[in-house]
Amino acid sequence: MNKLPPDPAPATRLDRSQRSGPTIRDVARAAGVSIGTVSKALNNAGTLKQETRERVAEAARALGFRPNDLAQALHRGQSFTVGLISNDSFGRFTMPILEGLESVLHDERIAVFMCNATDDPEREREHLEQLMGKRVDGLVFTARRADRRPSVGVNLGDLPTVFVFSQSDDPRSFCLLPDDEGGAYLGARHLVATGGRRIAHVTGPERFEAVRLRRDGYRRALAEAGLDWRDDFFLPGEWSEQWGRQAVDILFSSTAAAPDSILAGNDQIARGILDALRDRGLNVPGQVGVVGFDNWGVMVEAARPRLTSIDMNLSTLGQEAGRRILRMIGGEHFSGVERLPCTLMVRESCGAQAKTLFQEARST
């Protein structure tokens, strides 16, 4: 009876010398110079002939040598990296911010390390310790809600730090946020301009600062148009399509005059509103105009009719965060809260000609 061959030996880890690739010694040998000369040439330091620098660079390229990033960071005092920490597990808000941030930092050869804290303070502290261990040049904190958050619990020293779509309870911090009040004002004012006179506002929980600010913007637009505030037309609830459907039942079950327009606190609520109005046989926008908030592509384009919505310009927020981080790395200091304008994106749900308006929200 033939015996089975023995199992192959388990794979062993390569030792460091096998994994590390060419070293600075190899480059020095290939270029015919000292290790110190290689270091100066690759770090653009010291006084070397241009011919020597080019010979070292060519030897490094030929060997596929990659300098140790941490060692270079220590040498230069800059790592050319920025850390981004988010608790937005779905990426709905973080990814546009990251896109804008990278578009600015990429031009300066700065990479972004992204970490997901998932609302876990301990995990966030671990990420912070790791990022600071890598000597990142700056930090960006973002979230799925723009409300104030407790301090990070780690001494960041004078490390440049920006909160984007997020706020810190540290008064020395610098925060970039969308202009929620201005955005809601813009949406409600647009509904007035398209003929709305009985405008309801269906939104999320009032414990969120954005809900309170958007309520204020909605109320300001009504006042400017000479329209009365109606308590029964302001319905805070949940951030869901289901709440949008329930709110329509509430608004249209009363014997009093039903709304002719609805400003939703987000696009999910607006989608629920559109579904419920359709189920009632009400034409949008013929009988009821609807405006959402967020301009979430998968929501607004799939809605029937397509949804007019307020865009918070998250990518623009990310770009501004990148510009501020660069200036902070250069020695400038910022603190306080700055709010950037929102934009009205007009589609068919409000009764206006689609894509004819492109307006920015202003708080003043």
Rank of each mutant, 00 (worst) to 15 (best):
Met1Gly: 04
Lys3Ser: 12
Ser17Gly: 06
Thr23His: 01
Ala30Val: 05
Val38Pro: 01
Ala41Tyr: 00
Leu42Trp: 00
Asn43Gly: 09
Ala45Glu: 02
Glu51Val: 15
Arg55Trp: 01
Glu58Asp: 08
Ala60Arg: 00
Phe65Lys: 02
Phe65Gln: 01
Phe65His: 03
Gln72Asn: 05
Phe90Gln: 05
Gly91Val: 01
Met95His: 04
Ile97Asp: 10
Ser103Met: 04
Ser103His: 10
Arg109Asp: 12
Asn116Asp: 07
Thr118His: 08
Asp119Leu: 08
Arg125Asn: 08
Lys134Glu: 09
Arg135Ala: 15
Gly138Arg: 02
Phe141Asp: 13
Ala143Asn: 15
Ala146Asp: 10
Ala146Gln: 06
Ser151His: 02
Gly153Pro: 04
Gly157Ile: 09
Phe165Ile: 11
Ser173Tyr: 02
Cys175Asn: 15
Leu176Met: 05
Ala188Trp: 10
His190Ser: 07
Pro205Gly: 07
Glu206Tyr: 00
Arg207Cys: 04
Phe208Ile: 04
Glu209Gly: 14
Arg214Ile: 04
Arg215His: 15
Gly217Leu: 08
Arg220Phe: 14
Glu224Trp: 05
Leu235Ile: 08
Leu235Phe: 04
Trp243Val: 00
Arg245Phe: 11
Asp260Phe: 10
Ile262Gln: 11
Ala264Asn: 07
Ala276Arg: 11
Asn283Ala: 15
Pro285Ser: 11
Gly286Pro: 07
Gln287Tyr: 09
Val290Cys: 02
Asp294Met: 09
Asn295Ile: 02
Gly297His: 13
Val300Trp: 05
Val300Phe: 03
Ala302His: 06
Asn313Glu: 13
Leu317Tyr: 04
Gln319Cys: 13
Arg324Phe: 14
Ile325Gly: 12
Gly331His: 13
His333Asn: 11
Gly336Met: 05
Val337Ser: 05
Glu338Leu: 03
Pro341Thr: 11
Glu348Val: 01
Gly351Asp: 01
Ala352Val: 05
Ala352Leu: 06
Ala352Tyr: 01
Ala354Pro: 15
